[in-house]
């Protein structure tokens, strides 16, 4: 062994190491970022505007109070109002074209749970939770954005805050969400 410079002190080794680290970290950051950005919607629906003109959430997402899913509005629902609105811009023209042809708008749901989580809106609405508790302040959003940190601990946190210790025993039961 001629060289007296230890392995870890060689610059080439250090550069390669740094690069590998960078790629791994970058991949992780990119992956996380990718899951956090809102997906591309067929029409960049401006939630803030519709709330601004006084639309209730349940006007379009009708199922929340009565069932597991809040649901996404049909073209009919959009067309009901938009028929009377002049298609001033491209997006409105898109709505008009969907409406006129009676085609469905392929909305991409944003607030979804993995398949092993059973979530029902109904009990949460009955417990008088508001929509923005989980879906964020939509007056500030155009398209719906996924909310950060909605993991199991977040669910449990809220269940604990909203209940007495005895109730929490029941509300933290696995079968509340998983079966």
């Amino acid at each position: 062994m001629k060289s007296s410079i230890p392995l870890w002190q060689r610059s080439s080794v250090r550069i390669v190491g740094a690069l590998v680290l960078l790629i791994i970290m970058g991949g992780a950051v990119g992956g996380i970022y990718y899951t956090q950005i809102p997906p591309e919607q067929p029409i960049p629906f401006p939630h803030n505007f519709h709330i601004g003109v006084g639309a209730q959430c349940s006007y379009c997402h009708t199922g929340a109070a009565t069932g597991p899913n809040a649901g996404l509005p049909t073209t009919d629902k959009c067309w009901g109002c938009h028929q009377q609105i002049e298609p001033r811009n491209d997006n409105l023209k898109l709505v008009a074209s969907y409406g006129a042809e009676g085609k469905q708008i392929p909305w991409v749901p944003v607030a979804i749970q993995p398949d092993f989580v059973v979530f029902s809106h109904q009990p949460h609405i009955n417990a008088e939770l508001t929509c923005e508790t989980c879906h964020g302040d939509l007056t500030q959003m155009t398209v719906a954005e996924p909310q950060k940190g909605q993991n199991m601990g977040w669910c449990l946190d809220c269940h604990q805050k909203m209940s007495t210790p005895e109730e929490f025993v029941l509300l933290s039961d696995c079968a509340t969400c998983h079966y």
Binding site: P68, N69, T74, T75, P106, I112
Partner: peptide, 23 residues
């Protein structure tokens, strides 16, 4: 997993009032 994060759902073209997703 990014691949399964978003599912494109087609809304009902003419959803009758009694037929609701998830019900």
């Amino acid at each position: 997993g990014p691949s399964s994060r978003y599912v494109t759902r087609q809304a009902y073209a003419n959803m009758p009032e009694y037929n609701q997703t998830g019900v």
